[in-house]
Amino acid sequence: MGTSETLMTRFSQLYTSLDDAALDSLYEVYHCSIQFIDPLGEHRGLKALDNYFRQLLTNVSYCHFSLTDVQYDENQAAVCWQMKYAHPRLERGRELTLEGISRLRFADQRIIYQRDYYDMGAMLYEHIPLLGKIVLGIKRRMQ
């Protein structure tokens, strides 16, 4: 198994059932100088990423990813994914689904750069009672 293939296997295992226990393997996946960017912000360094994930996980009942398409070579990857999650204050705690894509770059057999792209409205705003109606109305008008 090649280095990139091994790294993508570890990446998949980390996100399959993202929880506090899974976060113990962050150092096996991410470079100590990781730059992680998503619609919520930017985090630099492994400690900052660990803190970010732990903060996010305190607010959800669970968070599971399935990787739907993975394209990679020795230096980079593009990963399409589907996240299933539940938050006690969104939609009465029922399971929600979000699709997204991650752009990854590798260094020293770890991920040194990750940029996640997803619809923040679909993840959060559409599920907040009053705000959700406004966001969905705007989306309908844009179509």
Rank of each mutant, 00 (worst) to 15 (best):
Y113I: 07
R44H: 14
L26G: 01
S33L: 12
R141V: 07
L90F: 05
R89P: 01
L124C: 04
P88F: 00
S102G: 05
S66D: 07
I37L: 10
E5R: 12
Y85E: 00
L130N: 04
A77Y: 08
N75S: 14
V70C: 01
E42W: 04
F11V: 10
D69Y: 09
P39T: 04
M120P: 03
A122V: 03
Q55A: 14
P88D: 01
P129C: 02
L46Q: 09
L56G: 07
Y27M: 15
F53A: 01
T68H: 02
D50A: 13
F106D: 00
G121N: 07
E95Q: 09
Q143C: 06
Q13K: 09
L40K: 07
M8P: 00
L131M: 13
I34W: 03
Q55V: 13
G41C: 14
D38T: 08
M1A: 11
I34V: 11
I112H: 09
K47W: 14
V29N: 05
Q114S: 03
P88K: 00
S66E: 13
L98S: 03
V79R: 00
L104K: 04
M123W: 09
I134T: 12
A48T: 12
V29F: 08
E126D: 10
L23D: 05
F36M: 05
G41Q: 14
P88R: 02
